[in-house]
């Protein structure tokens, strides 16, 4: 029951009034209203989860037909795959680096666009552009900007005298991986900044005024008052980013396809390649399940955190 109470801040007010409208509180009475949503969620989310797990425990021919349960054979095969280890290490770097840089850069940015200045609206709109334009389209333009012979990056570096001849940034996995991270940070900042901005806007004005009256410097105010109040927004932004970045597919797919070989793959793109390019359904479903469990842990953490946040408020 405590879950119900914590799910909406406005609950108590509504709760006292609702008896008149709905005398029955049974799940059956709710079914006509929430039933379609339930069916859609079961068909679209729950079914694929079950299908993924089932497939990971079975032997499946390339044509997709079922050949009986094989226990953990697929998982054993996957672990024996020599390509897996570097992909896992790269995934950890991928997630840690992107989430870290995104959060570190979004904090001051949110602060900045929370200030009052002429044209603030347009700056906020500018930040929405990468978010709305989608990750696919943004990856395409960055692929072009990073193009060795026609891209704007080499043009700019050349004009600044920093390079003598064109550098093929995306051709070498050593540099291309850093640029994939760069693009991922670029597309993650807008959403993160807006979440933090919402947190900043909820900081009560009188507290800030009191701090100002007491002679606190801006840094002290930020460090001692704003930042602690921003903690829950920060936590939620971080967790959502963890999930999004771990699941991130289009950036790598559009810019390098994980190549050359598997040199820029993460576990997400690696699982996709195993399934749809190499027709290795066994190992790909095993990796899919591992990926899913990883996300499940983060989601569980998210649910706990948000619940805690709500009770706090």
């Amino acid at each position: 029951m405590s879950t119900i109470k914590t799910l909406s801040v406005k609950e108590p007010k509504v709760a006292t009034k609702k008896r008149k409208l709905a005398p029955s509180g049974s799940a059956l009475a709710a079914l006509p209203w929430i039933g379609p949503a339930l069916i859609l969620i079961l068909a679209v989310v729950i079914w694929p989860v079950i299908e993924l797990i089932r497939a990971s425990l079975t032997e499946i021919s390339n044509a997709g037909s079922f050949h009986g349960f094989t226990g953990l054979t697929n998982f054993r095969d996957l672990i024996a795959n020599p390509d897996l280890k570097p992909v896992i290490i790269r995934t950890l770097i991928w997630v840690a680096a992107i989430v870290f840089f995104t959060v570190i850069l979004s904090l001051p940015l949110a602060q900045l666009i929370n200030q009052k200045f002429p044209g603030r609206k347009f700056v906020r709109w500018a930040l929405i552009v990468p978010w709305a334009a989608s990750v696919v389209m943004t990856s395409l333009i960055w692929k072009w900007i990073l193009n060795a012979y026609s891209g704007e990056l080499n043009l700019t570096l050349d004009q600044l005298g920093l390079i003598k001849e064109p550098v093929d940034w995306m051709g070498d996995p050593k540099t291309s991986f850093y640029f994939l991270i760069w693009v991922a940070v670029f597309v993650s900042i807008p959403f993160t900044t807006f979440v933090l901005l919402a947190g900043l806007q909820s900081v009560p004005h009188d507290i800030l005024e009191a701090a100002w009256v007491d002679g606190a410097t801006s840094w002290q105010t930020y460090r001692r008052i704003i930042f602690p109040l921003l903690r829950s927004s920060l936590l939620i932004a971080t967790i959502i980013n963890l999930i999004n970045v771990f699941n991130s597919f289009p950036i790598i797919w559009v810019m390098t396809k994980g190549g050359p070989g598997y040199d820029t793959d993460t576990t997400t793109t690696f699982a996709y390649k195993l399934a749809f390019i190499e027709s290795n359904m066994g190992q790909s479903t095993a990796l899919g399940v591992i990926n899913f469990l990883f996300i499940l842990i983060i989601v569980g953490f998210y649910l706990r955190v948000t619940k805690a946040t709500r009770t706090e408020l």
Binding site: V49, A55, N247, T268, A275, I295, V299
Partner: peptide
């Protein structure tokens, strides 16, 4: 929280 990417094979 679950994106289609994670479940794409399913």
């Amino acid at each position: 929280m679950f994106s289609p990417t994670a479940l794409i094979i399913g």
